[in-house]
Amino acid sequence: MRPIDDSRDFIPVRIAVLTVSDSRSLAEDRSGDVLAARIEAAGHVVACRRILPDERAEIAALLRDWSRDAEVDVVITTGGTGLTGRDVTVEAHRDVYEKEIEAFGTVFTHVSMAKIGTSAVQSRATGGVANGTYMFALPGSPGACKDAWDEILAYQLDYRHRPCNFVEILPRLTEHQRRK
């Protein structure tokens, strides 16, 4: 049961989508399309959308830029979370995180196990926070993006979700920077 409290107003968040791929263009970006469609269908805003190659420094630089952009509340990347030599998205995310949301990867693995069995161990999905911005790294398959959005992010990015959600604590992510 995932309770939605209808007495609370929905609060849309602004989400940037990054596809990490050495070979895809926006026209061929099925995973990015899945995420953008779900984000908009949920009532949120796709703030930006880009594709970058599997280059750790480039990915980290864009994550830092988006984390400092007042028009971006959440960043979702797709691709580069596997085990091959070119899969560097997780490392780029961790270069930027101030805090890692360890349970995100655990919950994603649990969701994936129900769909793909033990093949779920090959994913290194991760989540974290930097500069008051949530960041999530998802695998590059459309199915994995659907699963992560439908089973986790759709609820955690909905202010009405109870007992708690990411949106209600979003204003507090930078409270340590305001203290004197």
Rank of each mutant, 00 (worst) to 15 (best):
Cys145Gln: 08
Gly79Gln: 00
Pro12Ile: 02
Ala60His: 07
Val45Trp: 10
Thr19Phe: 04
Leu62Gln: 15
Ser112Gln: 05
Thr84Ala: 14
Ser141His: 04
Val46Ala: 09
Ile169Gln: 04
Ala42Trp: 11
Leu83Pro: 08
Ala144Val: 11
Lys99Ile: 10
Leu173Phe: 11
Pro12Leu: 03
Val46Phe: 08
Val111Glu: 09
Ala27Tyr: 07
Ser112Asn: 03
Ala47Tyr: 12
Gly32His: 10
Val45Asp: 05
Val17Asn: 00
Gly32Tyr: 08
Asp150Phe: 03
Tyr134Cys: 00
Ala120Ile: 03
Glu98Cys: 06
Asp73Gly: 06
His93Thr: 05
Phe10Ile: 05
Glu55Thr: 10
Thr81Gln: 03
Asp65Leu: 12
Trp66Ser: 12
Arg179Gly: 09
Phe104Thr: 11
Phe136Glu: 07
Ala137Tyr: 00
His161Asn: 13
Glu175Arg: 04
His176Cys: 04
Ala144Leu: 12
Thr81Phe: 00
Val75Ile: 15
Arg124Met: 00
Asn131Gly: 03
Val90Gln: 02
Leu52Ala: 10
Gly105Val: 02
Pro142Trp: 07
Leu157Tyr: 09
Arg172Ser: 13
Glu28Phe: 02
Leu18Arg: 01
Ala70Tyr: 09
Thr126Ser: 15
Ala130Gly: 01
Ala144Pro: 12
Glu28Ile: 05
Thr84Leu: 05
Leu153Lys: 11
Arg14Thr: 01
Ala125Leu: 04
Ile169Lys: 02
Glu55Pro: 00
Cys164Ser: 14
Ala47Leu: 05
Thr78Ile: 10
Asp158Lys: 01
Ala70Gly: 13
Arg24Lys: 15
Ala37Met: 11
Ala92Trp: 02
Ser25Lys: 10
Leu52Glu: 11
Arg179Val: 10
Thr89Val: 10
Ile169Gly: 12
Gly32Ala: 06
Arg179Asn: 10
Val129His: 02
Ala148Thr: 05
Arg14Trp: 07
Pro171Met: 06
Glu102Pro: 14
Trp149Tyr: 06
Ile152Leu: 13
Ala47Pro: 02
Arg14Gln: 14
Leu83Val: 14
Ile51Trp: 09
Arg24Tyr: 08
Asp29His: 14
Ser119Arg: 11
Thr118Phe: 12
Val17His: 07
Thr89Arg: 01
Val46Asn: 08
Arg162Ile: 09
Val90Thr: 07
Ala41Met: 08
Gly143Tyr: 06
Ile116Glu: 06
Val13Gly: 08
Ile59Thr: 02
Arg30Ala: 13
Thr89Trp: 01
Phe104Ile: 05
Met135Pro: 08
Glu71Cys: 06
Ala137Asn: 13
His44Leu: 14
Ile116Trp: 11
Thr77Phe: 01
Tyr97Thr: 02
Pro163Gly: 07
Gln122Ser: 13
Glu151Met: 03
Glu58Met: 15
Ala70Thr: 12
Cys48Asp: 14
Arg179Pro: 00
Arg38Val: 00
Arg56Cys: 11
Glu40Pro: 03
Pro163Trp: 03
